[in-house]
Design a protein around this nucleic acid. Structure first.
Lengths: 232, 232
DNA sequence: ACGAATCCGTTGTTAAAACAACAAAAAGGA
DNA sequence: TCCTTTTTGTTGTTTTAACAACGGATTCGT
């Protein structure tokens, strides 16, 4: 506890996250106290939250990457979303007291996580002002944006063919970054788990698409070829 | 405009919705004014919100049913969620100014919708008290719960086989209602669009499961047979 | 009660993905 | 740098779902 008082906390970094957006860096440190902040470090593969847990604190990823995923009883993994520095997770479950986690949150690279108790932001009756009010508004924005992420994952997996799913996902990446050349946060196995298809079949499809001149790819990097009207 | 002043608005019903939960029925009418409430009626098949729209007001379903769905360029429908009386929709897009809708909201039966402008709940700086504060908290809860719905849809469609998807969906229904006998809000076509499978193939699988004694079903009604450890 | 429209189950065919197994390539560690 | 581990691409086989077409059942409107 009080784990953050003896280590360096980069309030400037925090003020740039969506959660603390609009809150003065100088005002952040006291807020962290209020939220009972604590820190923890994870290695690749470590489980941060586990399905079935009842989480009371949200996590804020300070660095590294993590993924939100679930494993069915046969061990098949589904990836719901990937997390990068500055992103929070577990907020939906923290709002909904007692709702057990359906997912695991797993470090896909070494990372540090700050845990924050946001319960009293909601429980606390009466007026709320200043940073508290702002935090609530930010949480609402984040929650809305996360829902859109989930909706998008559903779209990308609604095509019946592997190619259709790849094109849905890749063309969205191109559009949202404004470039046909981009890196994705997934390796092949992770991408196939995100799109809900078999890895080897997806690999095969990708190389077929390369032979057809639709795209070029190497590992995390993709180049979509413009003749194909991805941007619409 | 002011469309609700000349018609009966059941504030008692409203006070039981998640949105107005915890707000005194007597206090609701003035809130409706603040939120610039308006009403509209739809017939089965009518489109309430359309993909591409930029919505400024959320919808509150007063009665009837609607579904949140998307259609790809080949006309294949994906159903993301079903809406019943008291549920709100469009809130994520209303929070995120300018984000165009990815989905359609379509009346699956005749229904009435109340539209509410919640923008100023968020824009408005400074303190917030009473009903306003409560509304924000409720919205946060609802948004969190909706995210969980979307996650659940992802789980139900992560199985590779039709049977796996049916069992995932049906056993969840049984668990969440506490009974192996229940009605679902979908007909066959809608269920298959929710689970992301072909209708006829799903029908075939369902009758196979009936022959195997796993369940009984007729139209919207399902009975799961207990020998199969659905409840765990 | 009647016809029209919708919903549902069934079948056969076709297309596509899952699966398993393996080798090459790349990355990471000592 | 060398060895180990991980990641990726490739192939062949099997399983399964999509698709198309149809008839029977149910519902709805009048």
């Amino acid at each position: 506890m009080d784990a953050f008082s003896d280590i360096f906390v980069d309030t400037v970094f925090l003020s740039k996250t969506m959660l603390f957006s609009g809150i003065d860096p100088a005002a952040i440190e006291p807020v962290l106290h209020c939220l009972d902040a604590s820190l923890r470090r994870y290695n690749k593969g470590n489980v941060i939250f586990s399905a079935g847990d009842k989480v009371k604190k949200i996590g804020l990823l300070l660095n590294g990457t993590a993924s939100i995923e679930s494993n069915d009883i046969w061990g098949n993994r589904s990836i719901l979303d990937s997390l990068t520095a500055g992103k929070i997770f577990g907020e939906n479950y923290a709002f909904l007291q007692d709702e057990p986690l359906m997912v695991n949150v797993v470090a896909s690279r070494p990372c540090e996580v700050m845990f924050l108790n946001i319960r009293h932001l909601i429980e606390h009756e009466g007026c709320s002002c200043g940073p508290e009010q702002k935090l609530l508004q930010n949480l609402l924005q984040i929650s809305a944006r996360k829902s859109l992420h989930l909706s998008r994952r559903i779209f990308h997996t609604s095509a019946k063919t592997i190619r259709g799913r790849l094109l849905s996902y890749l063309s969205y990446q191109a559009i949202s970054r404004g470039s046909t050349s981009f890196d994705i946060p997934y390796n092949r196995q992770e991408l196939s788990d995100y799109l809900g298809v078999d890895r080897s079949a997806m690999s095969f499809e990708l190389s077929k698409m390369q032979k057809e001149g639709i795209l070029e790819t190497k590992r995390h990097h993709f180049d979509l070829h413009r003749e194909n009207d991805f941007m619409e």
